[in-house]
């Protein structure tokens, strides 16, 4: 058992007496009470647990919390700034993307990482960036459309 400090959504968080092997997913959910990040498979297959690790999307179910020590982690709870939804979150609400909603935190984290790198993604770019996220309810058609709308909004174009 060790003490580990992470930077989560811009705040420094210290976990006392934590198993260094505990996946970041469970540290976020059970230790830090940030339950927006979801468990779906535990083996890096579904993407429900996607968070940003130093700005890149990773599967937190398969990353030991010790590997995140001292690193910047962003979770779905950290996407909105000053209660202002980011362009993707807003598009998700406006276009009513979720069905059950369980996968959507992971989808938003992958989509946010995509738009940070590529402000005008093609269909193929979107498909490639989102291929690691399963939506069991099948909201893929809407996710694609919402990413495009958000990209447009971010670039400052009218929808």
């Amino acid at each position: 058992m060790t003490e580990i400090t992470l930077n989560v959504n811009g705040e420094s968080k210290t976990l006392k007496d934590v198993d260094p092997e505990m996946p970041l997913l469970w540290a976020l959910r059970d230790e830090l009470n940030l339950v927006g990040t979801k468990y779906g498979c535990g083996i890096a297959q579904c993407g429900a647990c996607t968070v940003h690790f130093e700005g890149s999307p990773v599967r937190s179910c398969s990353l030991p919390v010790s590997a995140a020590a001292g690193k910047n982690i962003t979770t779905v709870e950290g996407l909105a700034k000053d209660e202002q939804l980011n362009a993707l979150q807003q598009a998700w609400v406006d276009m009513d993307v979720p069905q059950c909603g369980y996968c959507q935190a992971g989808q938003l984290m992958s989509a946010t990482a995509l738009l940070e790198k590529n402000s005008n993604p093609s269909d193929d770019d979107i498909d490639t960036a989102m291929a690691g996220n399963i939506c069991r309810c099948g909201t893929y058609v809407r996710i694609r459309a919402a990413i495009k709308q958000a990209a447009k909004a971010k670039r400052g174009g009218a929808a």
């Binding site: 339950v35 979150q89 609400v93 993307v97 979720p98 909603g101 369980y102 959507q104 935190a105």
Partner: peptide
């Protein structure tokens, strides 16, 4: 009409909504 789901804001901001998100005092797993 097209009405956005009533939980959408909570979903996209990662608020506790689902059974698996339940937290209680002295909760054990």
């Amino acid at each position: 009409q097209r009405i956005s789901g009533v939980d959408n804001q909570a979903i996209v901001t990662g608020q506790p909504l689902f059974g698996i998100d339940t937290t209680l005092d002295n909760l054990h797993y």
